[in-house]
Design a protein around this nucleic acid. Sequence first.
RNA 1: UGCCUCGUGGUGUAAUGGUAGCACUAGAGACUCUGAAUCUCUCUGUCUAGGUUCGAAUCCUAGCGAGGCAGCCA
Length: 557
Amino acid sequence: MTAKTEKPSDFIRDIVADDLRSGKYKQIRTRFPPEPNGYLHIGHAKSICLNFGIARESGGICNIRMDDTNPTKEEAEYVESIMTDVHWLVDGWADNHVGGAPFYASDYFDRFYEYAIDLIRKSKAYVCDMTSEETDAYRRLGKASGFRDRSVEENLGLFARMKAGEFLDGARTLRAKIDVNAANVWLRDPVLYRIRHASHHRTGNKWCIYPMYDWAHTLSDYIEGITNSICTLEFEVHRPLYDWILDALELPEPHPHQYEFARLNLTYSVISKRKLIQLVNEKLVNGWDDPRMVTISGLRRRGVTPTALRTFAYNIGITKYPSMTDMALLEHTMRDEFNRTATRRLVVLRPIKLVLTNYPEGKTEELDAINNPEDANAGTRKIPFGRELYIEQDDFMERPPPKYFRLRPGGEVRLKYAYIIKCDEAVKDEAGNVVELSCTVDLDSKSGGPTAGRKVKGTIHWVSAVHATDADIRLYDRLFTVPEPDASGDFKSFINPNSLEVVKAKCEPALAEARPEERYQFERLGYFALDPGSTAEKQIWNRTVTLRDTWAKEAKK
RNA sequence: UGCCUCGUGGUGUAAUGGUAGCACUAGAGACUCUGAAUCUCUCUGUCUAGGUUCGAAUCCUAGCGAGGCAGCCA
């Protein structure tokens, strides 16, 4: 039931354990290498938990590295958000296993260049003058480029001129000389460098040739002394090229090794960066940190905690099977944690007034309420009670269905921490809408009082009308209406029109002292977190997740 | 099409040649001053066919199915 984040086990950790046992590596060094071209999402969280988790469990190190080799896509803004998100998730858990300040592939551009020259000298790379289309066509046919057999000197000269900016974008490339007929297309003389006359977010205009992923990534791993280079399944076919580069350069051992695992898929959501950026750009959500987004910043704003996210990552495991994880598992992970940790408060989301006709006018009582029944150390607080209250509209029905045991005309219900009341009349406006409930209170039934033990089936939450404070509450629901929005057609057509509802709530006074870092359970409703846009004058709350609601299921029957 | 990888209840996973287990979900019940939590119970699984073996989810072969790759993106 509690978070079992201490001893995960999976095929990659088995390999790590073997590597250590056999002495292949003295210390494990992993890395988390995002490209700074978007915000991190829950799939990255899985990878972060894996890479930093392995470092943490094995006494190793995990580097954060910006894979910034494509100047046309990457921006400094993203670097900042990535660092914020990684630290939020890792601090207090694996922070003493972080490999210092973030590394940048762009810091190695000079060394990549030197390695490229070395590769040319070894006759294992050549400058190719074919267009992108020609390269593509030749590769499909398994046909060798006409420039494949240029001399080392000519290649060296051409490559230097590429670097010097003598050629237009796309005019030439540097290609590895491997095997134009290889069954694995990534071995058919892959491009190592392309020409891009573009300013880079860190190196400015120093370069006009930029290394491709395979070249940069493999060498970055080697330069940093990475031992286990863990990536997602789509890079599986790149592994032979990864190994080829290390061998072709005859780099001293030990070499890093690449392992692949399945990326995360979650029901009722889209996870790919491309799709998330569409939601942002087309304003279908309110930015990258919209609480309905499965970005790390969105989840954080929604109220998800690092511990819950790590527990979730542990629970889903690491495999090579491309699975579809049920959103219900994420929700369960949050409820499980918050049930143990959240401070309870009484809040009425959709208020209806209730008047206790036999309770003295002007009288106020202070009632004791428990802050967290799961945590004895959380203590108690006082809640003011009076003649006029607010209760939830849903907690009264004039003609209730079977098994409804909240308030009804002539019926009784317990007010949590207070009295048992009876509904005498539903007061209506001219249109016939119930606008107020007229009730009487059993004054002996107060919690701790003479008839407090009297059993009534229902207990509801409430708030004293004169003491209540106001707050805006954002009720979030799943962003999509179908389990697999990108299974077919346009995922945007499945957006849930009711994924956000804002209500004006009435809150018990103690909520005014709420702290942003704390999580709250509004009793019988769900778990909530203060939005960063909240102020002392105007509280704004985000619903992180509802409580399980078996009545909602029952009512649907 | 070629190459690579992967198939265990509805979902996510464990079992590393020796009793198919755990969690989520769903359903039933107990308890309840949260229709929450907690507790009990139930449903449901090794893709198929051969083979090896005393014994196969596990090893082998074939088939079927799914995913990935085939950018001068990462």
